[in-house]
Simulated assay, not measured.
Amino acid sequence: MLQAQATEELLILVDESDRQVGVAEKLQAHLDGKLHRAFSIFVMNSQGELLLQKRAKAKYHSGGLWTNTCCSHPRPNETLESACDRRLQEEMGFSCQLKALFSFVYHANLDRGLIEHEYDHVFLGNYEGSPTPNPEEVEDWQWMGLEALQIDIRQNPQHYTYWLRECLDRFLEIAGNHKGIIPMGN
Results as ranks from 00 to 15, higher is better:
Arg75Ser: 04
Met184Asn: 09
Tyr119Ile: 05
Ile12Met: 03
Cys84Ser: 10
His178Leu: 07
Gln155Leu: 15
Leu11Val: 15
Gln155Arg: 15
Tyr162Lys: 05
Asp18Cys: 14
Glu139Met: 11
Ala58Pro: 00
Gly180His: 10
Ile153Phe: 12
Thr132Tyr: 15
Asn109His: 13
Val43Asp: 07
Ile181Gly: 08
Leu50Glu: 14
Cys84Val: 05
Asp32Cys: 01
Ile182Thr: 08
Leu146Trp: 13
Ile151Cys: 07
Gly185His: 04
Cys70Ser: 11
Leu2Asp: 02
Gln5Asp: 03
Asp152Lys: 15
Gln158Tyr: 02
Pro76Trp: 04
Gly129Val: 03
Lys54Val: 06
Thr161Leu: 12
Leu114Ile: 01
Asn45His: 12
Gly125Phe: 02
Gln142Arg: 09
His30Met: 05
Ala58Thr: 15
Arg55Ala: 00
Gly33Lys: 08
Ala175Trp: 14
Glu9Lys: 09
Ser40Gln: 11
Thr69Cys: 02
Glu49Ser: 00
Leu168Asp: 06
Phe104Asp: 09
Lys99Thr: 10
Leu88Asp: 00
Trp66Pro: 04
Thr67Trp: 00
Gln142Asn: 05
Ala56Cys: 01
Phe102Gln: 04
Leu52Cys: 10
Ile115Gln: 08
Thr132Cys: 14
Met184Thr: 06
Gln47Asp: 04
Ile151Gly: 02
Lys57Asp: 11
Ala6His: 06
Ser40Ile: 03
Lys26Thr: 01
Leu114Arg: 01
Gly22Asp: 05
Thr69Gln: 03
Asn186Met: 05
Glu139Thr: 10
Cys96Trp: 04
Phe42Gly: 11
Ile12Asn: 00
Glu25Ser: 03
Phe42Glu: 07
His73Asn: 13
Glu91Gly: 08
Glu9Gln: 09
Ala24Thr: 00
Gly22Pro: 05
His30Gln: 02
Leu65Asp: 07
Trp143Gly: 08
Leu27Gly: 10
Gln89Asp: 01
Ala29Gln: 03
Glu78Gly: 01
Glu139Gln: 15
Asn45Leu: 10
Tyr60Phe: 07
Glu25Trp: 04
Asp85Phe: 04
Asn77Phe: 08
Phe39His: 10
